[in-house]
Amino acid sequence: MAQVLLQTSVDALVGTLSGYVTNVIGFVVGFVLTYLIGKFAIVPLVRRVLERRGFDRTVLSLLDSVLAALVVVLAISIGFMAAGFPRFLTAAATLGGALALAIGFAAQDLIGNFVAGVFIIKDKPFEVGDWIEWNDNSGRVEDIDLRVSRVRTFDNERITVPNGELANNAVTNPVAYDTLRQKFVFGIGYDDDIDQATDAIVEEAESVSGILDDPAPSVRVTELGDSAVGLQSRFWIDQPDRADFVKTRSQYVQAVKERFDEEGIDMPYVHRQLTGEVEVLESVAEQTVSADGGADE
């Protein structure tokens, strides 16, 4: 009887161990096969497809990291299925969903900026080196990260801007195209000749090297102010850059001002004169004096 019980115990132990070994072998085989297929077949295939579609290197690097993590998770899941533990997948999926929901609520701003960074890199509304304007701010883009973009202002300050702010608001990119149109309003007196002033403005624009001849500069009467007639000059510059734009604009305005001075064209400015009188009521003053005297007594 003892030998029979011992033999039964040994057989049960061997059967249990063999079951464990089978589970371990199944997990290892499932994990290794899934990992190798994902790493050397799926990930390179996805990367080649994205490269053909012209995705940025930053996006490709990010997707490599994400795909590598997904391959590991998938390999672990397949390994447990091959080992005969399907319940583990259910529990892991439930726990993962709860964790993802909690992380999503806690880091929604971070995730929003991250997604916005992906779209900025993909859509390219601006690139590194561009001069941009947004929400009364302006500067030159120094770096575009997945979470923030760094902009160097023209006062030599650095602004770290969350990508969500740039993706969800209007951003002006003055250097997106090869040319840029600018406008400036010159004011002349009501007694001055508009045609003479217009000719002077156009001729001075044509003499500035940074202003294009095609499209040609033009002038329109746009304002009838309190003390001046507004003539709006429209001109184009080539290969717009803020330094060149500011320099060209300054040279042009100075040239027109000097031309107006030579031809006697007035550039009036708004002036106001305050008129009125100050009236002193003696009765009120006497009442005040008497009241002070009564208080002294």
Results as ranks from 00 to 15, higher is better:
residue 198 T to G: 11
residue 190 Y to K: 09
residue 210 G to F: 01
residue 198 T to Y: 08
residue 201 I to N: 00
residue 207 S to F: 08
residue 255 A to H: 01
residue 138 S to Y: 05
residue 178 D to C: 02
residue 200 A to G: 03
residue 140 R to N: 14
residue 148 V to E: 12
residue 144 I to P: 01
residue 139 G to M: 03
residue 246 V to S: 07
residue 165 E to F: 06
residue 207 S to Y: 09
residue 228 A to N: 09
residue 194 I to R: 10
residue 249 R to Y: 11
residue 168 N to V: 12
residue 135 N to E: 14
residue 170 A to C: 04
residue 149 S to Q: 00
residue 158 R to C: 12
residue 159 I to K: 03
residue 203 E to T: 10
residue 243 A to E: 15
residue 154 F to S: 07
residue 212 L to G: 06
residue 240 P to I: 04
residue 174 P to G: 05
residue 160 T to G: 13
residue 134 W to D: 03
residue 211 I to L: 02
residue 161 V to S: 00
residue 151 V to D: 01
residue 136 D to Q: 10
residue 177 Y to I: 11
residue 146 L to R: 04
residue 229 V to R: 06
residue 185 V to P: 10
residue 248 T to C: 05
residue 230 G to E: 02
residue 191 D to I: 10
residue 176 A to K: 10
residue 175 V to G: 09
residue 225 G to C: 05
residue 232 Q to E: 15
residue 141 V to H: 02
residue 220 R to D: 14
residue 155 D to L: 12
residue 214 D to E: 14
residue 194 I to T: 04
residue 139 G to N: 06
residue 183 K to M: 12
residue 244 D to C: 03
residue 149 S to R: 00
residue 146 L to V: 13
residue 205 A to H: 05
residue 176 A to Q: 09
residue 170 A to L: 09
residue 138 S to N: 10
residue 165 E to W: 01
residue 203 E to M: 08
residue 163 N to F: 04
residue 155 D to H: 11
residue 256 V to A: 03
residue 158 R to A: 15
residue 221 V to E: 13
residue 176 A to N: 08
residue 184 F to H: 15
residue 238 D to C: 02
residue 224 L to N: 13
residue 149 S to F: 02
residue 253 V to D: 10
residue 250 S to H: 15
residue 216 A to K: 04
residue 240 P to A: 08
residue 183 K to A: 13
residue 164 G to M: 05
residue 211 I to N: 00
residue 248 T to P: 03
residue 191 D to T: 12
residue 190 Y to P: 00
residue 153 T to Y: 06
residue 243 A to I: 15
residue 222 T to I: 04
residue 231 L to I: 03
residue 151 V to Q: 00
residue 245 F to D: 09
residue 199 D to F: 11
residue 183 K to T: 15
residue 238 D to F: 08
residue 152 R to M: 10
residue 217 P to Q: 01
residue 192 D to I: 01
residue 229 V to N: 04
residue 174 P to L: 02
residue 227 S to A: 14
residue 235 F to C: 01
residue 222 T to Q: 05
residue 145 D to Q: 12
residue 232 Q to Y: 06
residue 249 R to Q: 13
residue 133 E to T: 04
residue 183 K to R: 14
residue 212 L to F: 04
residue 181 R to H: 08
residue 135 N to R: 13
residue 180 L to M: 09
residue 164 G to V: 07
residue 250 S to G: 13
residue 150 R to C: 07
residue 215 P to N: 00
residue 145 D to G: 15
residue 149 S to P: 06
residue 165 E to I: 13
residue 146 L to W: 03
residue 256 V to G: 03
residue 197 A to E: 00
residue 161 V to I: 05
residue 202 V to D: 09
residue 183 K to P: 03
residue 157 E to N: 07
residue 231 L to M: 05
residue 247 K to F: 05
residue 196 Q to T: 11
residue 148 V to Q: 11
residue 246 V to D: 11
residue 257 K to T: 15
residue 173 N to K: 05
residue 154 F to T: 06
residue 217 P to I: 01
residue 247 K to H: 10
residue 194 I to N: 06
residue 241 D to S: 11
residue 247 K to C: 04
residue 155 D to N: 12
residue 185 V to I: 08
residue 222 T to N: 07
residue 247 K to I: 14
residue 253 V to C: 09
residue 170 A to E: 12
residue 170 A to K: 08
residue 142 E to P: 10
residue 222 T to K: 02
residue 164 G to L: 08
